[in-house]
């Protein structure tokens, strides 16, 4: 920090807060994936292939989620069909 810095305007916002928010979201997402069994990505791909036989959908339009709560596992399949 030199004398010249005092003449420079400080206009950079709080970028650290943005970094923290982005990290919290991505880390939570990746931790969720970590707990999933190894077969989930392949199963998702195969389900997608079956759907593609009938409807034109993208990879992003299908989400597969496995939730473990107590002793009950829920496999949630979410497909966004095109209009």
């Amino acid at each position: 920090m030199s004398i010249f810095d005092y003449f420079r305007s400080k206009k950079t916002g709080n970028t650290a807060a943005a970094a923290k928010e982005r990290l919290q979201i991505i880390v939570a997402h990746e931790r969720g994936q970590r707990k999933q069994p190894d077969y989930i990505p392949q199963m998702q791909q195969e389900i997608l292939d079956v759907i593609r036989k009938y409807v034109k959908v993208d990879q992003d339009d299908v989400s597969v989620q496995l939730d473990d709560s107590n002793n009950c596992s829920v496999l949630e399949l979410n497909i966004t069909l095109p209009d």
Partner: peptide, 12 residues
């Protein structure tokens, strides 16, 4: 506000 703080990193 340009760098994550210690407590930010600890929180994550």
């Amino acid at each position: 506000g340009e760098m994550l703080s210690v407590s930010d990193v600890e929180d994550i």
